[in-house]
Structures are given as C-alpha cells and as structure tokens.
Write a protein that binds this DNA or RNA. Structure first.
Lengths: 115, 115
DNA sequence: CGCTACCCCTTGTGTCACAAGGGGTCGGCG
DNA sequence: CGCCGACCCCTTGTGACACAAGGGGTAGCG
C-alpha cells in the first residue's frame, strides 16, 4: 500500500477483495487492478499482500479457487465468492461503515480553543 | 475494541488519542472516556491498548507527559499535545479521510448482477 | 473494613501489511 | 531468433500493533 503511507488497510483489504469478486470470478492480478481502479489509484495492493490475503480468505471458506486461463491466454487462478463470503461481505461492509462513521464523528468534532 | 469485532482500529487509534488531547491536557483514563463518548459508545479502547499507544506517541514526540492530580484527587499522568503532534493530527486526519473516501467509493459501487 | 470507581502498567499472543525476494509464460519487437 | 516487458503466481522475513489477561495502588463511601 500505496499513496497513503499509513497502514489503515488493516481489516479493509478483505472487504475490498470480496467486493472485487462480487462482480464475478476474477484472478488475483485482476483483483488488484480492480481495487486500484475502483479507488481512483488511491489504494494499491502489493502482490505480497494480496496473495496471502486470498489464501487466508480461501481457508476461511469465503472464496473458492479454480485454475483456468486468463483473457490473455495465461495460466491463472480464478477466485469465486462463496455464499458465506457474500454474507460476510455485507456484514463486514456495514460494520466497516459504522466504524468509519463513529471515528469520523469523533475526528470531525469542532476543535475547541486551546489554553 | 469494542462493539465492532473487526480490528479496523489499526492506525486510527493514534488519531483519536491526539484528537482527544486537542481539547487540552488529559490523563489516559479520561482519553479513553472521551473516545467512548465521542463515538457514541461505538468504540471502546482497552487499557492494554491505550497505555502502550500513549507511550508510543510520547516516544514519537507527539505528546508530552506530566504527573498531576485528577479532578478526583488521584495521582494521574497528564498528556499534552505537542506542536508536531498537532501537525500530525491534521495531516493524519486528512490522510485518513482520503483513505476512507477511496475505500468507501469502492465498497459502495453498485453491485452487478451475478452469473 | 471492604468494595467500587478511578488510575497506572506489563507481558504474551496473534494477525497482518509490507519489502524483497523467486519462478514461469506469452506476445511482440529488434 | 532471442530478449524483454507485461502478465501471473508464490514465499519468507520483519515490524507494527490491538487485545486479553494479568498486576498494583489510592480515594471515598456504605
């Protein structure tokens, strides 16, 4: 990650991956490209971050993998969102939004005068 | 942390602490209370998370500590926002907002029909 | 006197983003 | 034809950090 130096990515990456796959099966490389494009290049996922994350999600049963051929005629592993993965995408997104709203409210609170 | 099971706190806690101190010097316990109150009880900071974070921020020079007496007449360590701490609060908050906006844009993108 | 609220701290433990590597294949270009 | 760049997969450190679970001490009140 990216433009934004901070490691705010924690816990958000999984959601972004699941969201990418909600468009239909994708291989890893395409997932990374989708995230970059969907965030207006604000978020860039390193490969060393992406692939472990995909394996993690697969272990959890939220996505399922299958080898295939990419549109460029290359060997690629396609990931598909599972039923529980889709459920978690919805639950996680709403949880994420509540978190962001709460933190945002606190951070936006009007600055007081200082002593 | 809290209501929201996810560990989205990463990288946000520092900002919340700095923001709490932007109201003027506070001791640790009061910082935790401020965060809980300012987020409508959505975010609860564990003491085992808070104090190491305070020490971390102090090591970075963003806050400065001084022993004193709380309003309840108890020994307490008061933290004060330093100049560089205030600068980081502003920079970090805007960076946080850009991150949230980017991720939110991607997560909100209208769900397509599935195959 | 004991209990609760207040206030400080530490030591595991686990997760995870990242940097830095490595490997293989396809298509095109000099 | 050989090379190079884009495409596509992966692993092994390393460090940061939130959390659970402990510990300690003081003030005031029933």
């Amino acid at each position: 990650m990216s433009d934004l130096d901070v490691s705010l990515m924690r816990g958000t990456l999984d959601l972004l991956i699941l969201k990418a796959l909600s468009w239909g099966p994708q291989h890893g490389y395409a997932v990374a490209e989708w995230i970059e494009q969907a965030t207006g290049s604000a978020l860039l996922v390193e490969e060393g971050t992406l692939y472990p994350a995909l394996h993690r999600l697969e272990r959890k049963g939220w996505i399922e993998a299958e080898w295939g051929l990419s549109e460029n005629n290359r060997r690629a592993k396609f990931y598909r969102l599972s039923r529980t993965g889709r459920a978690h995408l919805h639950a996680g997104t709403s949880s994420w939004q509540r978190f962001v709203e709460a933190a945002g409210r606190a951070l936006r609170a009007t600055a007081p005068r200082m002593a």
